[in-house]
Design a protein around this nucleic acid. Structure first.
Lengths: 106, 106
DNA sequence: TGGTTATTTTGCTAATTTAGCAACAAATAG
DNA sequence: CTATTTGTTGCTAAATTAGCAAAATAACCA
């Protein structure tokens, strides 16, 4: 595998990694409906603000969300809508696995 | 967040995590074209067989690929085709980020 | 049976990721 | 200017993951 191809796979993996955390998937889901400030997300999630802020900066670094400061608050928006398609596929993976499991038992 | 919802996000995250590695993305890409045995993938990837086998078992555990033993060899197949749609979205995330970067420089 | 090939499992260490407290920074209100 | 609200950053401990190497398992053939 040449260097460029390898670098491309690494870059793609980084984006998957950014989504590969339950809290961050929750954030993406919430932001798909409407923008939210860090404080709102923090309350929903129930972790420390610093933890939530860090999750958001990972999503931002991956180019998945964007932020906008308004007054003392920072609002986050979903930047790339197609990531939602990921989620429906993931659900179909889950369904297929569950179905198989079930068939093993029956 | 209730227990069930939390568990669902964790399950989804697991699937993302399974894809969140350059080698595993490469494997998914290769398998999208045609089935391959562990030995073929190992040669392409250039890591230790044990490492490749572990990557494959992670993809299998996530329900993304399936295996089939034929003689002494184990062939792997892509089970869920829609994961390929992920990849095109990931590419659009990458393009958008690169474009932004470029605009900062110009 | 014994030896060979293909794959998986296990043991181990190094590297990465995560959570949350505490300190710091920015914007605003009084 | 000082206090308050909101977020970010630095740091540490705990948990997870990666990858090599050695041992174990399985199928095949002489």
């Amino acid at each position: 595998m040449d260097k460029k191809t390898k670098a491309r796979y690494e870059a793609k993996a980084k984006i998957f990694k950014a989504m590969a955390h339950p809290t961050r998937l929750f954030i993406v889901d919430e932001l798909s409906q409407e923008e939210k400030c860090v404080c709102e997300l923090t309350e929903m999630i129930g972790s420390d603000v610093s933890t939530v802020s860090k999750h958001l900066s990972i999503l931002k670094g991956a180019g998945i969300v964007k932020d906008e400061k308004r007054g003392t608050q920072v609002y986050y928006n979903l930047k790339i809508k197609c990531v939602l398609n990921f989620l429906s596929c993931v659900e179909s993976v889950m369904k297929a696995s569950a179905k198989e499991q079930l068939e093993l038992v029956i």
